[in-house]
């Protein structure tokens, strides 16, 4: 049987929760995985070893892991990983790294998997207007979208080995231009509340931010909102030319539900729409639709959530 290797997703030297979901995916695909934890040191490896179902952990240690550099990461991780099927997270860097690992091994890469059933991997194509189902005929690299599998629980105790693996950087970060806002990124959030042109003024996004703060959610936007208002940054845009998100809950406020917006969020587990137009296309995709203006609905939503969540 082929070996399955999970590349842990890390952030600031800590293993991201999605890694436990990747372990679940590996088990569904057919085996207890080896988890590779890249880092400037091996401290994150212990949380990798604690995920149940992991057969062993390799801490891949090198200076190059202080900043993302596609070529250096791929060469160091490739050297640590045995042959087999490699699983990584379908994040911006995960997909980039996965492509490089696949190319290094001259195998195919299957991106954005949202289901695995009987060895068949399903990914959206044509911005989610169709699904592609593929089977693997040998080694490959597979990236899995967040929230696709429920995370494997803690309680594992896998053996950790450390491999020092340095690699030359091919790019150099000269300066980080910090983001103005410290808000949660939509690509990482489990709950998102997005506003569209129906919010009428960028200042009205403050109402969405208050709801977001109560829920621990990120604030997103439609392209119409991003294009119309300078204060609504492109990083917030959800959709075909913005970010693809897959949260448990997506709340669309004053968004009509154009096909390009749906492309970015239609796989959300639950969709709530608040729109004053009962005919808005977003309602066809909403689990819970509320026909109302945001002026009427958001204050009630905020106070209900505050009452519930404190």
């Amino acid at each position: 049987m082929t070996e399955i290797i999970v590349i842990a997703e890390t952030k600031d030297g800590i293993i991201s929760p999605v890694t436990s979901e990747l372990v679940s995916a590996a088990i569904v695909l057919g085996g207890n995985p080896t988890v590779i934890v890249p880092g400037v040191n091996d401290t994150a490896a212990t949380s990798g070893a604690a995920i149940s179902g992991v057969s062993k952990v390799i801490a891949c240690v090198g200076e190059q892991f202080s900043n993302y550099d596609a070529a250096a990461w791929a060469s160091a991780i490739d050297a640590c990983a045995p042959a087999g099927v490699i699983i990584c997270a379908a994040t911006q860097n995960g997909k980039d790294l996965g492509s490089r690992l696949a190319a290094r091994r001259a195998v195919s890469v299957v991106q954005d998997v949202v289901a695995i059933d009987g060895g068949v991997l399903t990914s959206p194509i044509y911005s989610g207007k169709a699904m592609q189902n593929v089977s693997l005929q040998g080694d490959a690299v597979v990236s899995i979208r967040a929230n696709t599998f429920s995370p494997s629980s803690d309680g594992g105790n896998a053996e950790i080995s450390v491999m020092n693996q340095s690699a030359d950087l091919k790019t150099a970060v000269r300066e980080m231009i910090a983001k103005a806002s410290e808000r949660l990124d939509v690509a990482e959030a489990d709950i998102i509340i997005s506003g569209g042109r129906g919010m009428q003024d960028p200042a009205n996004f403050a109402h969405l931010e208050r709801v977001a703060d109560t829920l621990g959610a990120a604030v997103g936007a439609s392209r119409a909102a991003v294009d119309a208002w300078e204060d609504i940054s492109h990083g917030m845009q959800v959709g075909q030319t913005g970010k693809t998100v897959n949260p448990s809950l997506y709340i669309a406020v004053g968004i009509s539900g154009a096909i390009q917006h749906l492309a970015g969020m239609r796989t959300s587990k639950y969709i709530v729409a608040i729109n004053k137009d009962a005919e808005a296309p977003i309602f066809q995709h909403a689990d819970y639709g509320i026909v109302a203006t945001w002026q009427d609905a958001l204050p009630i939503l905020e106070s209900e959530l505050k009452a519930l969540l404190g």
């Binding site: 169709a130 189902n133 593929v134 005929q137 239609r266 819970y288 509320i290 109302a292 609905a297």
Partner: peptide
């Protein structure tokens, strides 16, 4: 190729949702 395209299928249809008239249904 090391993969085989089994099929293309339409996106999964969600069970149709519930729609409520008016902000009074937010709770």
């Amino acid at each position: 190729s090391s993969i085989n395209i089994v099929s293309h299928t339409p996106p999964p249809q969600k069970a149709s949702g519930q729609k409520f008239e008016g902000a009074g249904n937010v709770p």
